[in-house]
């Protein structure tokens, strides 16, 4: 998953956040969680999953290399 795919996934998540279909739904999930709240708790957990995938497939590895070489240069200068 590259950065573009990640951006597309973020856009899809932003769209899914606007759950108009649950706006007036007072059904209780598990007997105590209102449907609108249960949906958004699920949304939060799905977000964690999305970022797990981003770390696996779209991690900016160049930044580690950059700072490692900067460290070496600084140490050499010292």
């Amino acid at each position: 998953m590259g950065s573009r795919l990640l951006l597309a996934a973020l856009a899809a998540f932003a769209f899914l956040h606007q759950d108009l279909w649950l706006w007036t739904d007072g059904t209780l999930v598990f007997g105590f969680l209102p449907a609108g709240l249960a949906y958004h708790v699920g949304f939060s957990l799905a977000t964690a999953g999305l970022w797990g995938l981003a770390i696996r497939f779209a991690w900016p590895r160049d930044l580690e290399v950059d700072t490692d070489s900067a460290d070496r240069e600084r140490n050499r200068a010292n």
């Binding site: 990640l6 973020l10 956040h17 958004h40 939060s44 977000t47 900016p60 930044l63």
Partner: peptide
């Protein structure tokens, strides 16, 4: 009411992590 969670918590979970990824690490 319960809409407060969607207003702040679920938006923050998505957007905060995006800010960490696109701005924070850089």
């Amino acid at each position: 009411g319960i809409g407060v969670y969607g207003l702040m918590a679920s938006w923050s979970g998505l957007v905060h992590a995006a800010v960490f990824y696109f701005a924070g690490i850089r």
